[in-house]
Simulated scan of single mutants.
Amino acid sequence: MWAAATFGATLVAAPLPAAAGLLDYVGQCVPFARAASGIQIYGDAWTWWGQADGRYDRGHAPRTGSVIVFAKTSRLPLGHVAVVSRVVEKRVLMLTHANWSRQNGVRGHAEQDVTLYDVSPDNDWSEVKVWFRASEGLGSSVYPVKGFIYGGRPSPQLTSTNPDYVGALIDAYVPGAGR
C-alpha cells in the first residue's frame, strides 16, 4: 500500500504504514489503483491498457475488482485508472479511486463507491460520466474509456458494507444525467 508525500514540487509515492487503510490514501490514481486492485502495472494511467495486453485479461464489461482505464484526453493528459467496487446494473457501477474530486480544496484523496454511468451510444462502456463531489452528482464531462483490466486481487476495503445503490441509480437516471 502506498501514500503520497510531497517534497518541493514533486509528488513521491511512499509505502503506507501497515495500520493505514486504503481510504486514507492521498496521491495519484495509479499507485492507488495498483494497491486497490492488485494489478501490478506501472506508468501513466493511459498506458495501462496497452501494458495489460498479454499480461492480464482485458475486456469491455465491468467486473468487481477490475480496473477501468480512461483514455488520455486534453482534460486527462495522463488518463485515469479506477477500480470497480460494485456493478449496480448494466449501465451503472461504483468506483473506488483517488485523485478525482477535491476534498477540502485538495485533489488526491481516495473516494469509495462513487457512481460511474455508461453514456456510450452502443452501451459498451466506451464513454462515461463520473460522480463529482463539487456538484454532488455526475459531472458534466464525458470521458472516453479504453476498457477494463481483469485479474488482480482486490483489497477487502474496495467497497463499503452498505453502498448507496439507490443513490447511484438516481445519480445516473435523473433527467439530464446522460447525454
Rank of each mutant, 00 (worst) to 15 (best):
D118A: 02
T47P: 04
P15R: 09
G152K: 01
S74H: 12
A14N: 11
D164P: 02
V142M: 08
H80V: 12
Q28P: 01
T6S: 09
Y42E: 07
H97L: 09
V26D: 10
I39E: 07
Y42H: 12
E89H: 12
H97R: 06
E136S: 14
L95V: 09
R91P: 06
L95A: 07
G139N: 12
P31C: 08
L22C: 04
W49F: 06
R91I: 01
S155N: 13
V84A: 13
V106E: 11
D124Q: 07
K129C: 00
D118I: 01
V114Y: 06
G21S: 11
D44P: 12
A172H: 09
Y117C: 01
S101Y: 02
D118L: 02
I170E: 15
F32R: 04
I68P: 04
V84S: 12
E111R: 03
R133L: 12
W131C: 00
L116M: 13
G105P: 00
W46F: 13
V145Y: 04
W125S: 07
G137I: 03
G147A: 03
G65F: 08
A110M: 08
F132V: 13
Y165D: 11
L16V: 01
L22Q: 10
V81A: 09
T73H: 11
A14W: 14
V142Q: 14
G151R: 10
W131S: 09
A98V: 00
K72D: 00
L16T: 00
S85Q: 03
I41K: 05
A3G: 14
P77T: 09
S126P: 05
G59S: 07
T96H: 03
A33F: 15
V142P: 03
A36N: 02
W49V: 02
T115Q: 06
L23A: 01
V130D: 08
G178M: 13
G137L: 06
G108D: 07
V114W: 09
A168N: 08
P62E: 09
A61V: 08
Y56M: 06
V119C: 04
F32Y: 09
A98H: 03
L169P: 03
F148K: 05
P15Y: 05
A110Q: 10
L11K: 09
V26A: 10
V106I: 11
P62C: 02
K90R: 15
S85P: 01
V92R: 14
G54P: 02
W46V: 04
R86L: 00
Y117I: 03
K146A: 05
M94L: 08
G59V: 04
L169I: 10
Y150F: 14
H80G: 10
R107I: 03
A13E: 15
D164A: 06
V130E: 11
Q51N: 11
R34P: 06
Q157Y: 05
P175Y: 12
Y165N: 07
G167V: 01
S155R: 06
N123Q: 15
V30Y: 14
K90I: 07
A36D: 02
T64C: 08
V88H: 13
G151W: 15
V114F: 09
D118R: 05
